[in-house]
Design a protein around this nucleic acid. Structure first.
Lengths: 241, 241
DNA sequence: TAGTGGTCTAGACCACGCA
DNA sequence: GCGTGGTCTAGACCACTAG
């Protein structure tokens, strides 16, 4: 792989430079799932100690770019671009990237609407809503948790049959309605409750959180309020102009 | 501090055990701001190598319990606050960024473009770029830090006069060009470098990070690449459908 | 058994903050 | 100048995975 210039003047640590070189190469030459060369090989290539290479790899592991597997090797993880637009849907989005995503139901309950949910669904606070919690995985790695809230009225019976997969597709085919997304709000917080363990991430690393409302495109009535928490280290939300 | 039993059978790594002992002691005996004993002292106390102690401390640093200060010591951080700030609520429209908020220049330098910057500005890596770092405050509270990158060629002279305020407005009036934003990428990370102190936020709370490129709307050439870090606790990015 | 990552040691030198 | 953390090296041995 040719001349990678490691600068030993001391202004930038060797492991930082190696980690940047590796990151660049991973982005341009590797695909998700590919194995990185062994630590010893990399140490030889850069003419540094194996510990120094390990330190460089540590950086990329903590950035969610690489994953270590004891006894097997170090592997490239998928970086996911989730495009937010009025039309784009999650599953289509990921399928078009050639990823296999699946979604499973963690919880399905009827609860009284708290005010934030009620306001967005345009119902009165305390009215019953269906709360569905789903976990999405991409390439068998946890990716995001979504809390879906729908008015109980009109949707309860139908949703009894829902047990995973794309909720939007399910609603579309069962009700014959098309959903369209209104504005989304994006912020970031540390994971709350069980989120960190479902997402298999450390509790001190942030999640990206989006709030969005989906309307019935014919009646213009709110159908679903969704609160999504993405593993931030594996997600970049892409906003088209 | 007495008999701390380090088990060397090999079922649990020494550094893990030390990190647990330290965590327990920090919770029961230390207050936020207190300094941890020096790494050499801890190494002596546990009869292990300094590297092993460092590895144990690494765990606690990455959990947001400790903070290292080069040349000074290792310090106990305040406990994480789980509550989402219900105080100041903030909504900022990505498109209206760059209008009326107060902004001051932290740095203005010419540096060689690293690959990520070069790619977005469509110039060759290593070409000189102007790097302007600005801090925006709203109601005298720090809100976000923006790293602006512009090609040196064509913009250097003009930018010598820039000393704050809206950079987009400045470019618009000086050059008579209109900027238009291409896609934005949004993710979230823990604050890096000096960001936490400029933003007056704890180092273990996340920032929202956006990357965007502004083009000259006539020539369709990239003019500016901006990397923005928002205090996540004060920001909700609003995406219109 | 061979190859991979995981841990620990020992020692050296550097960079930073402060008195 | 001294004490602190930061980096790098060299070498050893362990634990896991796969053929």
């Amino acid at each position: 792989m040719s001349g990678n210039l490691i600068n030993r003047i001391g202004d930038r640590a060797v492991y930082v430079q190696i980690s940047e070189i590796l990151e660049e190469e991973i982005r341009s030459l590797f695909n998700p799932g590919d194995a990185l060369p062994a630590e010893n090989d990399l140490a030889n290539r850069f003419s540094v100690n194996r510990h120094t290479v390990r330190r460089a790899i540590d950086e990329l592991v903590s950035q969610g770019i690489l994953e270590r597997k004891h006894g097997k090797g170090t592997f490239v993880l998928a970086q996911i671009n989730y495009c937010i637009g009025s039309g784009t849907r999650f599953t289509e989005n990921l399928n078009s990237l050639g990823r296999n995503s699946c979604s499973c139901v963690l919880r399905k309950l009827v609860i009284p609407a708290v005010s934030g949910v009620a306001k967005r669904l345009k119902i009165t606070a305390g009215s019953p809503v269906i709360w569905i919690e789903t976990l999405r995985t991409v390439d068998d790695q946890p990716f995001c948790i979504i809390s879906h809230f729908l008015p109980k009225e009109g949707y309860e019976k139908i949703l009894q049959a829902y047990d995973g997969g794309s909720l939007h597709q399910f609603l579309g085919s069962r009700l014959g309605i098309k959903l369209c997304r209104t504005e989304s709000l994006i912020t970031s917080v540390l994971p709350q409750g069980e989120d960190a363990s479902y997402l298999k991430m450390p509790a001190h690393q942030p999640v990206l959180r989006t709030k969005s409302v989906n309307m019935n495109s014919k009646t213009n009535q709110p159908v679903e309020y969704a609160l999504t928490r993405f593993r931030a280290d594996r997600t970049e939300l892409k906003i088209e102009p």
